[in-house]
Write a protein that binds this DNA or RNA. Structure first.
Lengths: 329, 329
DNA sequence: CTGAAAGCGCTAACAT
DNA sequence: ATGTTAGCGCTTTCAG
């Protein structure tokens, strides 16, 4: 591994000049610059990131904290964030929270010592701001860049990049109602999830718009995974609840609901229409194909990169969603 | 951020002693150790990873290079690898290869300067060993730990942790044949994928065992994604090919095949049985539920961690697979 | 058992 | 425009 000193010697300049050429800061004569550059190439020099980090006070990796990388929403996000960060010379340190608040705190606690340039928090779990808030502020005070993805924390001073939630759900449910698919049930996580509540509110708003009262028996509060969707829907079906559509809080849930409906011999969408939320990969390939609400991880990643690149960016960015009409509704 | 010097001062010892206590290397008197430890707690000291890395010559993060994090196989693997590495004090730097050989080379090239402790290569794409081989050896020469996941590179001197491929496929196809589901088609990537060929060979072996000749029209060489499976199967169906089962090289492909079959009004598994490969998350929730071949990311991660922990581990570990019988076959 | 001191590779004042 | 130099925080000989 060649060092700046090797480059400096070969180019016949001092290490300071090498550093200046490489960083682009400070004035360097054309002749010297040329020689440095060719020495860099000749030695295949790559600056040692740890030394740079030690000197600068922070490294060149951003910590991405995701709720659960195994869920497609997060893996798709991760992919785009990694690409976007790579574009501005930043690496990605991945931390899987596994939806654990304790783990989140531990990681936040260790972030400065880790040499992270910043932290991107991507979880929709409701955060205990009493403990997380101070930690986040502490990080910012240490000079770390902090960004929230999917959850609005801009009031807490954390720039946030989120998707539209309530209005998107509202439009989807309105579509169901207009298509004569009522009564419409809601399947999703109401508490514990920062976005779950918003989505439910969109459902409630759409019913309100249509002058329909909310039927508590048609609102199922569950976790986000497949099994939860399957069970809740099965229970409702077996209990003889009357509904002709289900708006789900996630695609996983929607798939679970579809399985429950199909297992009981009902047809989708004729007997029961289903709309998911999140447009994960396989939704279009299931039969019937899942009608769902879009996500735009690339747009999110682009905005997140803006923040880490130090580019001007709004404290709150809201990415729009659209209804993806496919076979299930 | 407290430094070793702060701790040393508070404990009334030298920084060397603090370092010795923290690393557990070297002898330290009981009294001194106690004082250091309580000083560490009092100051909430956490060693600066970049300084440690600079001094030691390498950092404490492992680079995980995955083919495509958005594919469930890789995200599940990543999750477990991150957990396992965390257990031995290592962080995870994620690099998404996007199946690009060029990107792989770039990352491998930069790895030492990045301060990585090691690199875990998780891709089943066929590697151009002429260029990748030397790079890998170069990394090892620089003291980086290198492990291959999913692809056998132990002959190249890279310890590998892989799943059973050929024999697992062979058993699955044999099961199809024994259940009277023949003729059996094979849908998967034959070239370009290091495991695709192996899986196909398992298929071929099972046919051979049953004394059946391979019908080239029933072997579809495609990429790994949904769409490819859908199209290949549609084409075969529309061309009037005769087969009553499809062994697929991946679950994504299987889902595509199922959609094609269902779209043409055929029943699964009665008209055509389908077996996937890989047991990704949603397979059990589709209808009919996908019969597939298991994966064990936790087992893989555990072995990978063994390598990075410097624990004794075999040059080649093969994780067994089992047939997961569900509804589609 | 413990301390002093050198130095990992780099950057940023500070000189010139 | 360019060089000199002082560390960033830590580990590790080398002395004692």
């Amino acid at each position: 591994m060649a060092t700046v000193l090797d480059v400096a010697r070969l180019a016949g300049v001092s290490t300071a000049t090498v550093s200046r050429v490489l960083s682009g800061k400070g004035n360097v004569g054309e002749a010297a610059r040329e020689r440095v550059l060719s020495a860099v190439r000749a030695l295949d020099f790559q600056p040692n990131r740890m030394a740079q980090g030690l000197r600068r006070g922070h490294g060149s990796a951003v910590g991405l904290l995701v709720g659960d990388i195994e869920q497609n929403v997060y893996s798709a996000l991760t992919k785009h964030v990694q690409t976007a960060l790579g574009g501005i010379g930043l690496d990605l340190m991945l931390y899987n929270l596994d939806h654990s608040a304790e783990r989140l705190s531990t990681i936040l606690e260790a972030a400065p010592a880790m040499g992270l340039r910043g932290v991107a928090l991507a979880t929709t779990d409701v955060l205990a701001m009493a403990t997380v808030g101070p930690q986040l502020r502490q990080l910012q005070a240490s000079g770390l860049l902090v960004v929230s993805i999917g959850q609005r924390l801009h009031r807490e001073g954390v720039p946030s990049v989120v998707h539209e939630e309530r209005s998107a759900a509202r439009r989807a449910v309105a579509y169901l109602l207009e298509s004569g698919r009522g009564p419409v049930a809601y399947l999703g996580r109401l508490s514990g999830s920062a976005v779950g509540t918003e989505r439910y509110r969109g459902y409630a708003a759409a019913l309100g718009d249509a002058g329909i009262a909310i039927d508590r028996d048609l609102v199922w509060d569950v976790s986000y995974r497949f099994a939860a969707g399957y069970e809740a829907t099965s229970r409702a079906l077996d209990a003889g609840r009357r509904f002709h559509a289900v708006q789900c809080g996630s695609d996983e849930l929607a798939l679970g609901a579809m399985a429950a409906i199909q297992d009981r011999g009902f047809a989708i969408p004729d007997d029961v229409a289903v709309i998911g939320f999140g447009a994960i990969g396989w939704g279009g390939h299931v039969r019937p194909a899942l009608t769902t609400i879009s996500v735009d991880p690339a747009a999110v990643a682009a905005r997140v990169a803006d923040h880490f690149a130090g580019r001007e960016a709004p404290a709150l960015t809201i990415i729009p969603r659209t209804l993806l009409r496919r076979g299930s509704a």
